[in-house]
Design a protein around this nucleic acid. Structure first.
Length: 320
DNA sequence: ATGGTTTTTACTGCGTC
DNA sequence: GACGCGGTAAAAACCAT
């Protein structure tokens, strides 16, 4: 299907600042990372290749002849006819006045027909909004396709009827991200779409309840930790320690109903203290987009439920 | 609408540098 | 005194019913 992971490319030459390993672009998650130590350098990797892969010459020719692959991101799937405006016939000769007039009329009607109904028009607007916001967020193409597909389904099911188009667009993008394991918070997305977080959350819920009945796995704490560490320039050692803590405490009892961001913040905080780095709660809370109180509460719960033994395998003075 | 749960807001007290 | 931290009460937000 899609080439999800690929080594080399424009990133193959970039080295990891920690261990000098060559970085790999993970287009599924929209990140560039180091395969050795997990260092994520930038979450802006965009797959610029065509969505299809051709196996041989014949297939490539076949693909090329039919033009671009059809796409969900255009309201007519990119399949509608364009009548060119230089008015030549198929041999390249200019049309005589009569035929030219006919062509002009056809062009006019073609334009009108293409987005004829109001539904088509709003679909066109919405898909434009999705593409725009996805562009700001630097989302990989498959995710944009997915988001467009979701929006189409919601429009078909009349869920988006008399709802804010931007709101539904943001919700579609968020669901697409969740489904394809791309780490973008609802906050980021609603910011990119220029709407209130609360509204986006409402629409997302609507989408889940009425359109998408498939189970969408909750974002893992581990991913939040990686993201948090990535956002703030934290020692990778702290990240690994935090991840280990999160792994050991399989926290099924204490995590239910809590925001994963808060939990991740707590793990990173504890890890930072354990590693002798001691990042203030204030900073972590800020980067995790939760309050200090939440960080504290999660910390307390973790420490109440699990005894953390101080057997650090990594010496505090080890250089990175 | 409602009630239970979680997060945020705002404030206080404590110890340390 | 400024700072980081821990705690609390009340308000606000969230979610399922």
């Amino acid at each position: 299907m899609y080439p999800m992971k690929r080594e080399g490319g424009p990133f193959g030459l970039v080295e990891c600042p920690n261990c000098r390993e060559k970085l790999i672009g993970d287009f599924e998650r929209g990140e560039i990372f180091c395969p050795k130590c997990g260092f994520v350098t930038r979450d802006q990797a965009v797959d610029q290749n065509p969505e299809w892969k051709s196996m041989d010459y014949e297939e490539r020719q076949k693909r090329m002849r039919v033009g671009l692959p059809s796409t969900n991101t255009l309201h007519d799937y990119g399949l509608s006819t364009d009548i060119s405006s230089d008015f030549r016939d198929s041999h390249g000769k200019y049309l005589d006045p009569f035929n030219r007039q006919t062509a002009q009329r056809m062009q006019k009607w073609q334009r009108r027909i293409r987005t004829s109904s109001s539904g088509e028009r709003s679909l066109s607007i919405a898909l434009g909004k999705i593409t725009e916001a996805a562009d700001v967020l630097a989302l990989p193409m498959p995710v944009v396709e997915e988001a467009s597909h979701i929006f189409r389904k919601s429009a078909k099911a009349a869920v988006s009827k008399s709802k804010s188009i931007s709101g539904m667009a943001a919700a579609s993008i968020y669901l697409a991200c969740r489904r394809s394991n791309v780490n973008r918070s609802l906050k980021e997305i609603s910011k990119a779409a220029g709407i209130q977080n609360r509204a986006a959350a409402k629409y997302y819920r609507l989408l889940i309840n009425q359109v998408e009945h498939n189970y969408v796995p909750p974002p893992s704490v581990q991913k939040y930790i990686s993201k948090l560490v990535n956002k703030e320039k934290i020692n990778p050692r702290v990240e690994r320690l935090a991840l280990e803590l999160a792994d050991r405490a399989n926290e099924s009892e204490i995590s239910s109903g809590k925001t994963p961001a808060g939990l991740a913040a707590a793990y990173v905080y504890i890890a930072s203290v354990l590693a002798g780095e001691h990042i203030p709660q204030r900073e972590i809370a800020e980067f995790a987009e939760v309050t200090e109180v939440t960080v504290r509460n999660r910390c307390r719960e973790i420490l109440e439920n699990f005894t953390i033994r101080q057997k650090l395998k990594v010496a505090p003075e080890q250089s990175f």
